[in-house]
């Protein structure tokens, strides 16, 4: 577990490519949540992707080039907050690994040490207190594998939901099992991947929750895609968006 810095006045946000393209509301909400705690949030426009898609597919050289770019555009000593456990895990654990035994290692290490997953940052660094103004609601929580195993932040994420007075969190029966996304795995092994996500949405449906929350948009894209395909009336939502809506008083305003 990373050392916990004093509460800073300014942070970087790394939005992630999926949030950028498909779930911008999650990114905006994350930005708002951080700002509400009195922080200045910097969003370097030259940021792109953490490099994980290529890294996991075996294209290490390409992944390294993209990683190098991110290291370059987040130069300062500021914490880098990421609304994704998977991208955070990539940057925190695999950047130093990718540049091991090279001259770039110290930079990668220094970068990695500044990376925080959003809920980890909200809980451990900012110690946020959430004031729930929404109506009673039942939700369930899906952790990404990398939030669970690489970042170890599942408790932080769930503790944020539990702070919401009118929200009932029903946990999944197989909370620690992969939803079957796995990046290119979902298209290289579509049969296994879809079998996995089918089991996941069945588990979600059994909770009786109207909303499934996650801190990772890869999983969300997979899960909501399957929910829609199988016409299961459960909405998928990024944790940041949910937290903002529940505490802001105006569900639509982002």
């Amino acid at each position: 577990m990373a050392r916990i810095p004093e509460k800073p006045t300014t942070v970087y946000m790394f939005g992630t490519c999926l949030v950028d393209m498909a779930f911008p509301r999650a990114g905006i909400a994350a930005h708002r949540l951080l700002e509400r705690e009195g922080l200045t949030v910097l969003f370097p426009q030259a940021q792109s992707c953490c490099g994980q898609p290529a890294f996991n597919s075996g294209f290490i050289k390409e992944a390294r080039a993209v990683a190098r770019k991110q290291i370059e555009v987040f130069p300062g000593p500021l914490p880098i907050v990421v609304p994704s456990g998977s991208c955070a895990g990539m940057m925190k654990h695999h950047y130093p690994e990718m540049f091991a035994d090279t001259a770039e290692y110290p930079k990668a290490r220094q970068f990695a040490d500044r990376v925080f997953e959003l809920s980890e940052f909200l809980v451990r660094v900012l110690d946020v207190r959430l004031d729930d103004v929404g109506p009673p609601e039942t939700v369930t929580w899906h952790t990404s594998c990398h939030a669970l195993r690489e970042m170890g932040v599942i408790e932080e994420s769930k503790s944020l939901i539990r702070q919401l007075e009118h929200v009932n969190l029903v946990e999944l029966e197989r909370e620690e099992e992969c939803c079957g996304f796995g990046g290119t795995f979902s298209v290289k092994q579509p049969a296994i991947s879809t079998a996995m996500v089918k089991d996941k949405i069945d588990d979600i449906a059994r909770t009786g929750a109207a909303t499934v929350l996650s801190g990772d948009c890869g999983c969300l894209m997979n899960i909501t895609g399957a929910l829609e395909y199988h016409r299961v009336p459960v909405e998928g939502k990024h944790l940041a968006e949910f937290l903002w809506e529940r505490t802001n008083g105006n569900r639509k305003q982002l």
Binding site: V19, P190, E228
Partner: peptide, 17 residues
């Protein structure tokens, strides 16, 4: 392959950037 058992991903009109 993705849409064998999932609806297609929807890209936002306006990115986070």
């Amino acid at each position: 392959q993705w849409t064998r058992a999932r609806s297609a991903p929807k890209f936002a009109g306006k990115s986070l950037h």
